[in-house]
């Protein structure tokens, strides 16, 4: 009976040891697997990121979209002009636009209009010109200055859109 008990006890200890060793081996495998994965992730984020559109940079920045307008019409002698100036929806949550309308009048560039900030998706239908135009065709430039939608309204690169104003 005593011998039987001793044998039983030995078997129980052996089983407990096997389970304990298995448990430790499992922990070790899990630890190394996790460690290996975290190294891989760090490398992917910091050094081997493939940039969007295969561009060679780690900066992610959305460009600013500006509208192209080629021709504007105004009634000669009138200070009201229908513009079609707009801020494309592509700039949503990113950029305001401002518009300045310049025209070459008698060889001199004159500012006819300057807008406030225009939000993405919004447009300016009609503007009041600083001066009226006589009948004729005038070379014009629409200067578009974008601003970031942040606290400081940081200006970005900008665009000059060449157009003509037809005063009829």
């Amino acid at each position: 009976m005593n011998v039987e008990n001793k044998e039983k006890k030995k078997k129980t200890i052996f089983v407990i040891l096997v389970i304990a060793v298995g448990f430790l081996v499992g922990i070790a495998i899990g630890y190394f697997a996790a460690h290996k994965a975290s190294v891989k992730t760090e490398g992917g984020i910091g050094f081997t990121v493939v940039p969007e559109n295969n561009l060679n940079n780690t900066h992610t920045e959305k460009g600013v979209t500006v509208p192209g307008i080629t021709s504007l019409s105004v009634k000669a002698g009138s200070d009201r002009l229908v513009t079609g100036f707009y801020n494309p929806v592509e700039n949503k949550d990113e950029y305001y636009l401002t518009f300045q309308l310049w025209a070459e009048i008698n060889g001199k560039n004159e500012l006819l209009y300057s807008s406030a900030l225009v939000e993405p998706g919004n447009s300016i239908y009609e503007i009041k010109l600083n001066k009226t135009l006589e009948k004729g065709t005038y070379n014009a430039v629409i200067h578009i200055q974008p601003y970031r939608m942040n606290k400081d309204l940081t200006p970005t690169n900008n665009a000059d859109i060449k157009a003509v104003i037809k005063a009829v």
């Binding site: 780690t58 900066h59 920045e61 959305k62 460009g63 600013v64 979209t65 500006v66 509208p67 192209g68 307008i69 080629t70 021709s71 079609g84 494309p88 592509e90 990113e94 950029y95 974008p146 970031r148 940081t154 970005t156 690169n157 665009a159």
Partner: peptide
């Protein structure tokens, strides 16, 4: 009317990297 849209780079910022 002739029309178009142009998307330009807003900013480019260099760092030491």
């Amino acid at each position: 009317s002739a029309s178009y849209e142009v998307t330009i780079p807003a900013n480019v910022e260099f760092t030491d990297a």
